[in-house]
Amino acid sequence: MKRITIDPITRLEGHGKIEIFLNEEGDVANTYFQVPELRGFERFCVGRPVEEMPLLTNRICGVCPEAHHMAAAKAADAVYHVDPPRPAKLLRELLYSGFYFTDHTTHFYALAGPDFVMGPEAPVAERNILGVIHKVGLEIGGKVIQARKHGHEIIEMIGGRKVHPCTSIPGGLTKGITHEQRAQIAEIGTWAIDFAQFSLQLFNDIVMGNQEYAELILGDIYHHRTYYIGTVDQNNKVNFYDGKVSVVSPDGERIGMYAPAEYPEWIAERVEPWTYLKFPYLKKIGWKGFVDGADSGVYCATPLSRLNASDGMATPLAQAEYE
């Protein structure tokens, strides 16, 4: 049996590899996505004060520490049975929005984007951020760098650091922002909306305008019928920071909605011997293996899943693109 190894994976943050096994006819017999690195965060957090969790867990990743920071902060709120005041909630959400903008800019332009923007026939050596800048121009490359800079400025103003924020504590934050910082963040927000609209147009022109890629994206080669989950607000609109988790079937039927504290009632984790990655699945459906369909508890929790699990976006411009 022939074996193909892709190691390391370069389109995702973190350590991973893919093992592909071919049968005698040269067809794929089996494929494994492996995370070979043992991080051990679950173990060395045991016995530590809960107040330390927002600082410890955000070291899981240097690209998305804000997500781990906020999740741990919310867990600490729950342990202390405290509900942060509205200004603290708004500041936390603003910090997270700055991260979300920065993180998706990184993914679109530096990780996933190069394969699409450069085109299917581009040499592998050109499918990177430098290749993208060469194709779209230095001015646009400068905008990408500026977008990341702005996002981290917001994170630093609220979170105390550009990377690995440190201000969330049980019940709120250790600091607020000044009037000058508020004005600066508002200015960055206006700039970010323009940049997001520009990026959408770039995607439509270069990616969806390429017939070969459009057929690949819209075809059934990568189509999986799974359940979808995503956080939504009280109007069932996408919310990135707070709300309940909406669960939708492969056919688009909402089968339930749960609060974060109800996670153990809905989600279980499967462990396989060939990877340190865990495989969450819906308890109510059960684990049926690595198969899709309504009878399998496998679900997706991705940007597309957020859209599938919701009734739209909460802001006008985003809703217009959704429609």
Rank of each mutant, 00 (worst) to 15 (best):
C166A: 14
V28S: 04
A214E: 06
A192G: 03
I18Q: 09
A75R: 06
E253H: 02
I20K: 09
L12H: 06
M70H: 09
E265W: 03
E42F: 03
V247A: 04
G151M: 10
W274G: 07
D27N: 13
V248K: 12
V63P: 05
G137R: 12
L282K: 10
I229Y: 06
L90R: 09
I9P: 00
W274C: 09
W274Q: 13
V124Y: 00
E25T: 12
L91W: 00
W266L: 10
G312P: 01
E153D: 15
E272V: 14
E25H: 12
I18C: 11
A318G: 10
M1S: 14
L22R: 11
R161A: 15
A29H: 14
L282M: 13
A196V: 08
V117E: 10
L173G: 11
G141D: 05
E323W: 10
I255P: 03
A110T: 13
N58E: 02
G62A: 13
T57E: 05
A259S: 04
I267K: 05
S249A: 03
P316L: 07
M313T: 01
P120D: 08
V79D: 00
G14I: 10
A112H: 15
T105E: 09
M70W: 01
L202S: 03
L56D: 07
S199I: 03
I188V: 09
E66V: 15
V248E: 08
E37S: 07
D242I: 05
Q184Y: 11
V144F: 15
Q184G: 07
L173F: 04
Y109A: 10
K89I: 05
P316W: 04
G230P: 00
A309S: 00
D233F: 08
E139W: 01
E121R: 11
V35K: 10
A309V: 02
G176C: 13
K284I: 04
T315R: 13
G297W: 01
L111N: 03
A186C: 02
L56Q: 06
C64E: 05
V50D: 06
G26N: 12
V35F: 06
A309M: 10
F33W: 15
A122M: 12
E93L: 03
D205C: 06
K149V: 11
D311W: 00
C300N: 01
M53D: 00
E66F: 01
P303V: 07
N204C: 06
K284V: 02
I145K: 11
F41I: 00
S199P: 07
H134Y: 14
I154K: 11
Y222V: 00
P303E: 06
L200I: 10
V232L: 09
D295T: 15
G141E: 02
P264N: 04
T57F: 14
V46D: 11
G286M: 10
C166G: 04
W191V: 13
D233N: 04
G40V: 09
